[in-house]
């Protein structure tokens, strides 16, 4: 427990001087990135700007060329195998299409992290999985379905349930609303906001969806010229960089902003 308290002052994620490259192509150059505890951080940028790469590098799926990454107060390069495994139990990752294990049912999918990290009584393990399925907004009868029997939106929810299985402190979402219809996307935004407040999560969300940004994100990081510019929406709107101007103050950005402020007034 002392460990947890010690970690608490440190940011959820701190990336310093990160450089990544694929062959000769440099994706990130001397990039700094920080996520505070309990905030929802949106990660945006043009196609190929390296949003997903940054997320994958933080969770250790991509190798970095240089730099330092701290997650939940731990330097990921200086962990023993056991510590790294424990760290993996403290975050959850939702991949773009859910990345559910196709040979398992939804319930079994959600039980996988529980089985890998915790030795629980079978009944409790199942009940916890059912809670996560319900939290993700899936109907109870979806539990025994296989991923191939689910729609895209339901697969995402199931993926979210699996990401939440261990009650992580940190949740990574890769384009959570991509491929959903506007109603489904808005529901998903609301769901993430609700869960974030109820479970006290820190969320890092890669997205293209301007509505999501306005609806749930506390701060936004824009990946541009191999670096990150961070700010709240209001701050970024004042950023003179042409890409940012175009992104937030283009027709779609303005529409999303208007929709968000309308919703805030209604609420």
């Amino acid at each position: 427990m002392t460990q947890a308290r010690q970690d608490d002052d440190s940011p959820a994620i701190r990336v310093q001087g990160l450089t990544t490259r694929f062959g000769p192509k440099v994706i990130h150059q001397d990039l700094d990135f920080e996520v505070r505890r309990g905030e929802v951080m949106g990660l945006v940028g043009g196609s190929g700007a390296g949003k997903s790469v940054l997320m994958r590098t933080i969770v250790g799926l991509n190798r970095k060329a240089a730099g330092r990454i701290e997650v939940l107060g731990r330097d990921v390069d200086r962990l023993s195998d056991g510590e790294r495994q424990r760290l993996r139990g403290r975050w959850g990752v939702l991949f773009q299409d859910g990345a559910l294990f196709s040979s398992l049912t939804v319930l079994q999918n959600v039980e996988v992290p529980l089985r890998a990290h915790r030795q629980l009584d079978r009944r409790l393990q199942r009940e916890l999985a059912e809670i996560k399925i319900a939290l993700s907004g899936l109907p109870a009868d979806a539990a025994h379905k296989r991923p191939s029997e689910l729609s895209g939106g339901m697969r995402k929810r199931a993926g979210l349930a699996r990401a939440l299985a261990l009650d992580p402190e940190l949740l990574f979402l890769d384009e959570p609303t991509a491929g959903l219809d506007p109603i489904g996307a808005a529901e998903f935004d609301r769901l993430i906001g609700d869960l974030q407040r109820a479970l006290g999560l820190t969320v890092v969300m890669v997205t293209h969806d301007l509505d999501s940004l306005y609806a749930v994100c506390d701060r936004i990081s824009v990946l541009i010229d191999k670096r990150v510019r961070v700010g709240t929406l209001e701050e970024l709107e004042r950023d003179p960089h042409p890409w940012i101007q175009e992104y937030f103050l283009g027709p779609r950005g303005r529409a999303a902003a208007a929709a968000a402020s309308r919703q805030r007034q209604e609420a």
């Binding site: 319930l107 009940e127 059912e130 809670i131 399925i133 319900a134 939290l135 109870a140 009868d141 539990a143 025994h144 609700d194 407040r197 109820a198 479970l199 006290g200």
Partner: peptide, 20 residues
């Protein structure tokens, strides 16, 4: 407040029907 919301969220779930 936060924990009450959590408990309420958890209480909402229902157990999945038995496997076919």
């Amino acid at each position: 407040e936060a924990r009450r919301r959590l408990v309420e969220k958890v209480a909402e779930h229902e157990s999945a029907p038995g496997e076919p």
